[in-house]
Each structure stands twice: as structure tokens, then as C-alpha cells.
Nucleic acid binder design. Structure first.
Lengths: 229, 229
DNA sequence: TGCAAGCATTAATCTGATTTTTACAAGACC
DNA sequence: GGTCTTGTAAAAATCAGATTAATGCTTGCA
């Protein structure tokens, strides 16, 4: 099912973020063709994308040079996923957590000022689903509701760049569930906080929404650090 | 000099973000070959990158469909540049301002905990330069110091994702000066706040740093909105 | 020792052919 | 008439061969 292009892209991307191919390593297109048994078009297009993501640089007569982490497009969902899958998961999640503690409270407060009735409804419904599936212990359905909640909230902020961070948050939530960095049963307190945010947004209370969202991130960070220790 | 690949990439990218090719428009690879007079490899690789940026989606038997803005990788430097060049500059700057109000205070507070002595020095020196050039009314030198201040601070947060947002902040600062959305002489208060952040970071006082940085963003937003009215 | 010419390597580009997927339509059936 | 199957063609995806253009490195000369 997975197309050859995506296959090569994923595999090389993962080898780079995992550190198997450290910065400075030099590859060649011919080498990739042989390694993966694909035609030049496939490896060529994969390399172009990796170069766009800042993971590789191409140079004539030299080849493909693996780039230092400082040049990576760390906001690209693909890079985030690779790093969560095979890279420095802990560092990555800490970075993302700190970042979220910055922009999600702002998004919550903006959403309280700008959310449409439909978005308020979607938010409440997602929060309710979290209650139901959280209590039932259905982690997959809980995750789905969690993702819906945060994506809707960021969308409702009316700020397209905050909305664009929805992909990043989705990767974090999915990643930490997938890698078992979550309590086996979601905490009652976390679930409750989501409901509080939803109500504050509906009531148009930006400060209440912001504070509740700050608590969500703090709680999530604490839960995760404990779990990793 | 500019390679064919980058040429096609830039041109198609700009046509999309400018709205000349609205979401839903369907193109074909053959069409691009003809339009730009390049071979399939070139258009193919450009399309692959555009697809990675979320601007296009490819589908067999259909062609290339221009995607809605909601899927764009709006944090990619290429996309930011295209939008500042041919897109909606003012909306873009407002979005970026709201985003900054989220992550810069967090970065300031983290920097107070983690900045190295060298970074503290660079921060203080940038703040001093802002005083000097601000009072002298040298806008270009002031901007340079301002950019140095914020980039250093984000770097000093010790969080690579916050550091990666340095480029974004630079765009905001440069953009608003370039488009005359700044007071002709920087406000004494704004300059003073930067010094306060630098001192708080050096002293290791995260809360003071955070509050001062919040004030910087609030002041900047107010100044810009007034100017636009 | 320094410099310039030439060589060899590798990405960049062009081209033609084949394979695979799949939207759409024509026909078959109820 | 409406739904289901089947066939066809359109377009991307992939493969493969050849040519072009930069450019790092070496060689030879002064």
C-alpha cells in the first residue's frame, strides 16, 4: 500500500533522526538506489523532500550530506513523528511540552473570545467523549476525543498559525499514548479540566479558559515525567 | 544561477499562496512541464516538495489538487517568505503577534533558568545597543539589536523548538519595521523592558523575566494596532 | 611552494517506455 | 428507475538510459 516514495522517505528520515546517520555523513543517490532497490526517480524525489525538511543538503561532486539538527524543520509533522518513533523521544516530548505551555493557554483565551457556536458544541462534545471513554478505559477512543478537543480549540482561536499547531499537538498526544507514556487510565482531574475549558470558552471567559488550559499542560507534563522516571 | 527546480517550486508556490490558484484547482504534471518548459523530473520533484508543504495533493487519474490553507506548513520558511512576498501581509503579522504572546514569555522564563553566561552577556549587550540606537533614532541598527535580542533569548531557552521560532520572530520584527508599523522613534518604555528582561535572565528570576516579556509583546501589539488604525 | 589546467565524480536534467491505480461511464440486472 | 458490475482510459508512479553541468581533487609546470 505504502508507495515507494513514502517508504524511502520514511526510512531515510528515520535513519537520520535516530542518529544512525549522524550530521556530516555523506551519501550518494546511487547508493540509495542500490540500498533500497528503487529507481532514481524515487530516491531523487525522496531526497528533495528531505532537503526541504533540512535533513539533507545536496552538492554536486560531493553527494548528500546529512545536516545538523539545528537546521531541521522541527515543526513538520513528519519530522516530529520520526523523532517520536526512533529518535530522542524524551527530549522531544519535553520540548513540545514547554512549547505547548506557551501557546495552548493563549489559544484557549482567544477561543473564548472568538469561538463560533458550532465550535463550542464540538468542544463540549469532545470533552464529554473524554469523560465517557476515559471512565470506560477505552484508550483509543479517549485519544481520539482528546485530539478532537485540542484541534478544535486551536481552530477556534481564529489564528491560523495556532491552528496549524494542531498537527503538532496531535503528534504529541498520539505519540505519548502509542509509546505508553500515559497512565493506563486517564486521571479524573485531567478529564475534568478539559470540561472546564470547554465551559469557559462557551461562556466567553478568556481568563478562566487560559488558567484551566495552563493546568492541563502542567498536569500532562507532571504525569509524563513521573511515568518516565 | 537559480536551479530549475527551485525556480518552478517558487513560482508555483507563489501562485498558490497569492490566491491565483485557489484551493480545489486541479493541475497536471504534463501541464506544468509545458507551462514552465521543463522536463518531468524537475516538475515532479517540485510537486513532491509542494505536496510535502501541504500546498498540493497528488492523486492518480485526477492530477494535482491545490489544497486549502488549513493544511499548509505555515511554519516553513519558504511558505512564510511566499506569503510575505505575495500574500496577505497584515493578517500574517497579526497571527504572528498572537503567537509570540504565547511562546516568548515562556522562552524568557526558561532562559532565566538555563542561559549560559555567554548568552546573558549577548542579551545584555543587545539590550544596551537598543538603548543607544533607539535614542539616536537609528532604526536599522535598532532593528538589528532587537533581532539579536530575541534570537539570543529563544536560543537561551534551551528548547530547540523555541529556538527554531527565532526565524519567525525575525520575520515579524523586520516585517513591521519594513512596512512602517513601528513608531518613528522606539518608545522609551519598550527599550526599558528589554533591559529588564536581560537583567532578570542574568539574575535567574523566571517570573520577572516572563512578566517583562509579556509587557513587551503587549506594548508591541498595541503600538502596531494603533499605527494600522 | 604556489598556481593553473585537466580529470573524474556526482548531482541535475532530459527523454521514452511501462506499470498501477482509479474515476467515470456503459451496460447488466433487479 | 435504481443499483451493481465491468471495462476503459486518464493520470500519476516507476523504471531505465543518456546527456549536461558543476566542482573537488590531482597533476604538472614554473
Amino acid at each position: 500500500m505504502a508507495a515507494l516514495h513514502d517508504d524511502v522517505l520514511d526510512r531515510v528520515g528515520q535513519r537520520i533522526v535516530s542518529g544512525e546517520l549522524p550530521a556530516g555523513t555523506v551519501l550518494t543517490l546511487d547508493g540509495l538506489d542500490r540500498d533500497y532497490g528503487v529507481s532514481r526517480s524515487v530516491s531523487r524525489e525522496a531526497v528533495r523532500v528531505l532537503a526541504a525538511l533540512g535533513l539533507l543538503a545536496t552538492k554536486r561532486r560531493v553527494g548528500l550530506t546529512v545536516q545538523d539538527r539545528s537546521g531541521w524543520q522541527v515543526f513538520d509533522p513528519r519530522v516530529i513523528r520520526w523523532r517520536l518513533d526512533v529518535g530522542d523521544r524524551t527530549d522531544q516530548l519535553r520540548s513540545l511540552g514547554e512549547l505547548r505551555s506557551g501557546f495552548e493557554p493563549v489559544a484557549a483565551s482567544l477561543a473564548a473570545l472568538r469561538a463560533t457556536p458550532e465550535q463550542c458544541g464540538a468542544l463540549s462534545s469532545a470533552a464529554e467523549d473524554m469523560v465517557i471513554h476515559g471512565r470506560a478505559g477505552d484508550l483509543a477512543a479517549y485519544l481520539d476525543a482528546d485530539v478532537r478537543f485540542h484541534s478544535t480549540l486551536l481552530e477556534a482561536s481564529g489564528n491560523e498559525m495556532l491552528a496549524a499547531l494542531g498537527g503538532v499537538v496531535t503528534e504529541v498526544l498520539t505519540g505519548r499514548t502509542h509509546h505508553h507514556l500515559m497512565p493506563s487510565a486517564p486521571l479524573e482531574e485531567a478529564i475534568d479540566l478539559h470540561g472546564r475549558v470547554a465551559r469557559a470558552v462557551r461562556a466567553g471567559e478568556p481568563d478562566v479558559a487560559r488558567v484551566a488550559m495552563e493546568a492541563i499542560i502542567t498536569e500532562a507534563t507532571a504525569a509524563m515525567t513521573e511515568d518516565m522516571a
